[in-house]
Every structure is written in C-alpha cells, then in structure tokens.
C-alpha cells in the first residue's frame, strides 16, 4: 500500500511537472535564442491569469483559456520589438536588470489596476472532482491541463524540428553569425519565439487561475521554479527542459510524501546536485557563445 501511495505521488508529480513545463519551456527558448534570461517571464504568466479572469467574465472559461495567450502574445510582440531587441548583443547583466525591473513594474501595475486582493476564478462545474484511473486519484481538471500541455508540447516540437522555421531557430541557437552570413535575419524569428514563449506562460496562468490564487505576486512565485527547471534541464535542449520539469514535479511530490516541510526546498537541492554533477544541466548542449 505504501508503495502505491508513493507511486501515486510520482504520477501526480508528472502532471504538475507538465504545468511547470509551460512556463519553463518559453523561458528556455528565449534564453537559448536571444541569450536573455527573461526575468519578466513570470509577469506574462500573471497577465495570462488576470486576462483569463477578465475574459471569462464575459465569454466563459474555454474562450478565456484560448484568448488570454493570444492577448498576452500580442503584448509579447511589443516587449520583443521595443525592449528585448536592444539587448541581444549587450552585456547580459543589462538584460537581467531590465527584465527584473519590468517584472517589478508589471507586479505593481497589476496591483494598481486590479488591487492587491486576489481575484476569484471559477472552473466549469463539470471539470470539478476527481476520477480514478486504476488505483490512482486524479483531479479531472488536471487531466485536461495535462492534455493541453501535451498538445502544446507536440506543437512546439514539430515547429522546432520539422519546419524550415525550426531549422533556422536551431541554427540560430548554435551559430547566429553563420545564420547571418547566409543572409537570414534572425529578428523575425526571435519575435516569434518570444510570442510563443510568453503565450505559453500566459496559457499556464490561465489554466492555473481556477485552482490557485490569482494575485499580483504570482509571477514572482513561478519565475523561480521555472528558472530552476531551465537550469536543471540545460540550455538549448528541448528534452532537457521537459525532463527537468517532470523531475522537479516528481521530486517535490515524493519529498512531501516523506518530509512535507522540505517540499519546496527539494527542487533547489536537486538543482545543486545537478549543477555539481553536470554543470551544463541534464541535457544541456555546448553552445559556443555562452562558453
């Protein structure tokens, strides 16, 4: 029985990892292509949640989940065009400072527009409750969340590995100078990557709004976890981030099973261990310009 319980935590951790992935994958892509650690990434997650609450008021839950990433993605275009773009070749510390500052501005902006008090966000009644698959208990809502993550993941993978767009992006990660020498401007690709990245973050926010507190500092909460996932997974690797997200989810669940008070600390311990053993992250590739 004890083993079943543990296994249940592992499976639940995988589901949660899938959700972390929505935020971490975009962070990793933006970092890999643009060389920018986007500390404002959490802000787009928060905007996604707030936008979905607003849209859900008028159009209902499902349109809100679909439209909120589109709205935030549009914001992402402005973000890339007018801010990020200036920092691709600058000292990375500058982009860190700018995005960190933006995260603060975004949090305060949310506080000014919507107030500090959290917003209630409901889910459709049909999605409430748990289902049993074998002996395992699942929240019905999270199964839907998992399905959405799987579809998004598949879409991003196909885009990066089976299209001309993806080939340029992957080449751009390794040798931006060579891509430029071939006469390809990376900028429109970067815009698309940023839009996809912040759109995924927004989708994460919209999906998590019905089950977690929608409050101004929610972006700051998630950015730390997403960052840990990216570091564990390694740069430039799609599967590294996937693996790391699932691993963080599972390690957290198993730790809470045995030692609940250490639940939140477990992911940082994991990060330290991974960095000691594999400084490049689990599946991190050697990227020349970052060495």
């Amino acid at each position: 029985m004890q083993l079943m319980f543990l296994l249940e935590q592992v499976v639940n951790g995988l589901v949660l990892g899938g959700y972390y992935l929505l935020i971490a994958l975009g962070l990793s892509l933006i970092f890999s292509v643009g060389g920018i650690v986007n500390l404002a990434h959490g802000a787009f997650y928060a905007f996604g949640a707030y936008a979905s609450v607003e849209i859900a008021r008028h159009l209902g839950f499902f349109p809100a989940v679909a439209l909120s990433p589109v709205a935030v993605g549009t914001l992402g275009i402005l973000f890339e065009r007018f801010i990020l773009r200036r920092f691709y070749t600058a000292d990375p510390i500058l982009s860190l400072l700018v995005t960190f500052g933006l995260a603060m501005v975004a949090e305060q902006a949310i506080r000014m527009v919507w107030g500090a008090a959290p917003l209630p966000a409901a889910m459709p009644a049909a999605l409430k409750g748990a289902v049993f698959l074998g002996d395992f208990l699942f929240s019905r809502y999270r199964l839907l969340l998992l399905a959405v993550v799987a579809v998004v993941l598949l879409g991003i993978w196909l885009l990066l590995h089976k299209t001309a767009f993806g080939r340029v992006v992957r080449a751009g990660i390794q040798r931006p100078d060579m891509v430029a020498a071939l006469g390809i401007r990376l900028q429109p690709y970067m815009t698309t990557i940023v839009v996809l990245g912040v759109g995924m973050a927004a989708l994460g926010g919209a999906l998590f709004a019905p089950i977690a507190v929608v409050h101004p500092a929610m972006g700051a909460e998630i950015i730390t976890i997403a960052f840990v996932v990216v570091v564990i997974g390694g740069l430039g690797s799609f599967w590294g981030v996937v693996l790391a997200a699932l691993l963080v989810g599972v390690v957290r669940g198993v730790t809470i099973h045995f030692l609940p008070a250490a639940g939140e600390a477990s992911m940082y311990v994991l990060m330290i261990l991974v960095l000691l053993l594999r400084p490049r992250g689990l599946l991190g590739e050697r990227i020349e310009r970052f060495e």
Binding site: V37, L96, A220, I223, T224, F227, E291
Partner: peptide, 26 residues
C-alpha cells in the same frame, strides 16, 4: 557575449531569488 554562461546563470539565480523574496510596495 563577453560574459560566460555560468556567471549569467548565477546572476539570474540571484535575481530570481530576489523575486521570490518579493518586490516591495510603498
């Protein structure tokens, strides 16, 4: 890039950590 990936990661970790501690409101 004139800064190594490791120092970028370290700076990023420090700032993400600061984000977790919370941004002050006045």
């Amino acid at each position: 890039m004139n800064s190594s990936r490791r120092s970028l990661l370290m700076a990023g970790a420090a700032m993400a950590g600061a984000a977790a501690v919370g941004f002050p409101a006045v």
